[in-house]
Design a protein around this nucleic acid. Structure first.
Lengths: 128, 128
DNA sequence: ATCGGTGCAAATCCTTTGCATTTCC
DNA sequence: GGAAATGCAAAGGATTTGCACCGAT
């Protein structure tokens, strides 16, 4: 089930490439639909289904992160960080933190990825 | 937006009561559908829509937690803790940890709730 | 020629919602 | 009595999937 390096099963398609590149450059946390809209500029014929398929695989490969807030969003940057999600405007902010300390506490299994979510009202919304 | 003690707007219905009691007693992390199936024993006519409505309100009141893993699950226990989610069997384990330390790092807004997820393979699955 | 990936559209699944009815204060 | 909650069924939205076709090895 694990991808075998010797097998040339997985292809790097332009679609996959464009999606990953977009997520790398984007300093936001787009939804699948937003990714689709964005990559359509480069690949006008790309379908939403393909975007979903590629996002799923990129997550499984660990190249991107899936953020499960009120809406599902995606994030490049597999470095250790959390997310603050504003209940008001639904904006997502990156929060740098060290997950290693947390992972140490886990005994029930081997941790592959760690995600931290903070929910609240962001400063911008509080000021209004 | 905060529930006003003087207003008698919110009713404590048997449905709400049964749902909350079930979550309190259950030492698992049920999905909405599982909650529905469970409470049907006490309230045979309860609808899935009502379960969703009540779960949503209980989350907003802070009485229960919504766990957004691969599937959405619910959890009583508002004490500070995280969840380990097994990629293989999808079992959810409680991980006790102190969120306060994490919350201190957040500058972008006031944190109301904090959730920590660990993904990996649990010991049970690894042994097989 | 083959086999994985794609586009398209239909199907599926989860959750929300409208509305008539019931329930509780 | 009247607001709020319910049950039911329909609607909505996000994601997945089946299938014929395309493209790279």
């Amino acid at each position: 089930m694990v991808t075998n390096k010797n097998s040339n099963r997985k292809r790097i398609t332009p679609q996959r490439q464009v999606i990953l590149n977009y997520l790398k450059k984007a300093d936001c946390h787009p939804t699948a639909k937003e990714v689709h809209t964005a990559v359509e500029e480069d690949l006008p014929r790309i379908s939403l289904g393909t975007v979903y398929r590629n996002l799923k695989e990129l997550v499984e490969e660990g190249k991107i992160q899936k953020i499960a807030g009120e809406e599902v969003r995606y994030d490049w940057n597999n470095s250790s960080h959390g997310h603050f999600i504003c209940k008001e405007c639904e904006e997502v902010y990156d929060i740098s933190l060290n997950c290693e300390d947390l992972i140490e506490k886990v005994q029930v299994g081997e941790v592959e990825t760690c995600q931290v979510y903070f929910y609240g009202i962001c400063e911008d919304c509080k000021d209004n």
